[in-house]
Design a binder for these strands. Structure first.
Ligand SMILES: [Mn+2]
Ligand SMILES: [Mn+2]
Ligand SMILES: [Zn+2]
Ligand SMILES: [Zn+2]
Lengths: 141, 141
DNA sequence: TTGCTATTGCAACTAAGTTGCATTAATATG
DNA sequence: CATATTAATGCAACTTAGTTGCAATAGCAA
């Protein structure tokens, strides 16, 4: 579980500045248990009286994405992109079509088996994948 | 492999009209081996001198999607949605990051096993999923 | 042929994100 | 601390992808 201080130290070492907006955005991202959109992030900052701007939010999200601090997620049923802090292990999402909640799932060892099969049978080298499950959560069934 | 005539007959039975634009769009969708975007579809129609319009294309794609004649695909690395005719079996895609080619893969029986596990362990009922693999095709490795 | 109404085209609009540029503010250095 | 350097910011204008209202057009059943 990557902590705020670690991320800031890493950025600082890279010659990047720790601004109010940057710190707050990373805080919000760490604190949000669902992947959050740019708009949601901006709203969250404004609520905390952190002066912030749409452009800054988008630029910062791209910055953090390039540095693999956050990952971008595109839910099939949505138009906006969402972001979440990249913790150790890669995972996927269960999206409830009832209440729109999102849960994490890990099932990666398994997918790697398919990826090897795909390599063997088609010569296609898988480097990355995106997987999301849509359905109904326990409460909504 | 669903043929043009079958799709048109099905729509006709439903009380929908077989217009020039509708027929041509379905033809293009059937003929395109990669999922195609609205813009690509429009360009394709114009090249064939079928009078068509952006609004019509978007409306028709939504119409065909609602009727499960086409499925909408959102590639993670793209901003636009793509569409392909739904043939019998559900499948996924291998997207080459080198040449941008797209191949189909089927591995569904397997994913259903995970979906049952997710149900058992989390009480989440999976109704649908989206999976795509990004990597390098045989030619691009 | 005609009437009903599904479909179309246009222009105007929205949503999500990007860009150029002048200004501000972190932070390294003396 | 003072100051210079340049990373980061804010604003307005722009772009891209898709949507909507509405009047005109055109399938198709009778
Ligand atoms: Mn997650
Ligand atoms: Mn396909
Ligand atoms: Zn739910
Ligand atoms: Zn390739």
């Amino acid at each position: 579980m990557k902590a705020l201080a670690d991320i800031l130290a890493e950025l600082s070492r890279g010659g990047f500045r720790i601004t109010r907006a940057r710190r707050s955005m990373i805080e919000v991202l760490i604190g949000s248990r669902l992947p959050i959109s740019a708009e949601g992030l901006l709203a969250s900052l404004i609520k905390q009286r952190v002066p912030a701007n749409k452009t800054t939010v988008y630029r910062e999200l791209n910055f953090l994405k390039e540095r693999k601090i956050v990952q971008e997620i595109q839910f099939l049923h949505e138009r906006v992109k969402r972001y979440e802090v990249v913790f150790g292990s890669h995972h996927h999402h269960l999206i409830c079509m009832g209440c729109k909640s999102v849960e994490d799932v890990e099932l990666d060892g398994e997918l790697e088996k398919y990826e090897r099969d795909i390599m063997k049978s088609r010569g296609f080298k898988v480097l990355n994948h995106a997987l999301e499950f849509m359905g109904l959560c326990e409460a909504c069934r």
